[in-house]
Write a protein that binds this DNA or RNA. Sequence first.
DNA 1: CCAAAAGTGTTCAACATACACCCATGA
DNA 2: TCATGGGTGTATGTTGAACACTTTTGG
Lengths: 232, 232
Amino acid sequence: MLDQYRQQHPYLLALDSIIFGFDGEGLKVLLVRRGVEAETWSLMGGWLQPDESLEQAAARILFELTGLTNVYLEQLYAFGDPHRDPIVRTISVAYFSLVKVADYESKLSETFQARWFSIYDLPPLLFDHGDMVSLAIRRLRYKAAQHPIGFELLPEKFTIPQLKKLYDAIYNTEFDRRNFSRKILSTHLLIKLDEKQKGFSKKGAFYYRVDTEKYRQLNHSFLNFIASPLAP
Amino acid sequence: MLDQYRQQHPYLLALDSIIFGFDGEGLKVLLVRRGVEAETWSLMGGWLQPDESLEQAAARILFELTGLTNVYLEQLYAFGDPHRDPIVRTISVAYFSLVKVADYESKLSETFQARWFSIYDLPPLLFDHGDMVSLAIRRLRYKAAQHPIGFELLPEKFTIPQLKKLYDAIYNTEFDRRNFSRKILSTHLLIKLDEKQKGFSKKGAFYYRVDTEKYRQLNHSFLNFIASPLAP
DNA sequence: CCAAAAGTGTTCAACATACACCCATGA
DNA sequence: TCATGGGTGTATGTTGAACACTTTTGG
């Protein structure tokens, strides 16, 4: 009975992470330099270990580079073209994650040469990593359009104008300031703080934070929510 | 330099297909009987071959069971829990597909013992195949809510009431007959035929077919379309 | 006191929902 | 002729886009 297993070819299984960050201006992706070919950048990646699930492996690899835990992590797609890695056939499961840039700065591992790149100005990437990034951007746009996912990229406290800038960056457009804030606040997912942002504008914008309880509930009920509208 | 590859463990890579069909009444999933354990049903699956991409392998496996080509096929998720297959660690990439039941009936391969099951009344499934089906149903609902994907489950010619029944089945609800037809027709994706359905109702409903050209264009521009609304 | 950014309010059009009503036809 | 399902029309409320106006405060 084990025969049906024994006859089969095994394959190397890699994980690659598209790590998004927002620095207040533009949407960025974290890339690492390949030791081998100095001019080529690549996604942070690694190999699946025998005792790990795919998600555990992706989280471990993210931790090794950034030192971050508890970050938003979502499976993107499995890439398995026979020639995607020209040396040895490798299947790669790509994950994308959303990190708060400020948290990362302090914990950056020196083992890797890493840099943030604007998603609109990427260098040539290894293998099919360019496809992975493109797909991740599309998925992020898709998801953020219906899911309150943007907060994951901002610090605990943020202002509505900051949030708008993030959405502007994600969709490479300019949302209407007034409509944006109304729409965001209508979700009742944000809690207004007494504190105002200083230094940036003269009037100063109020800080908000996410109502984590409601946020979690919404993530759970999300699938019921999206199933209701009908639109073929 | 090959060392970094040689040190790594390889894994078996399987593909499993969630095959959806609609018989005019309910949404169905095609399951096959496992020769080994007579009481257990499972998804149609197979192994990745060295010269295939993941999608090619999924299409091949679907063909082997149903004899169908050119069916809607979409990658669902990669399942990689270390113990999902208790015998040998296997990573499975699940695909879901939408087939026209009528096409299938004639070409059914006799090699497999296959049967359609209502998605609301499934037998116990092998390994994590139950999770795969649940996820596929969620994904189908998600997708069908914004994407004209339902046609893939119907024959070339179909009536609006048939289409409504399909959506009722997908969402396990009852859409308003009048609003449904208005909404569908407002997409201008359907072409009305002169022919009427006979036998089912006294008046008879007009047949429609998909405007394949528009359908294709819509699939291409889909991401632009869904990116526009803003909703965290 | 004024420029610049933040915040509030108003209008209008588009769309979804909930129905009422008429149509065609086989039994 | 009438029951049954198919098709069209209409009123009402909700939502989103566009944009005018007021508020705050550092220079």
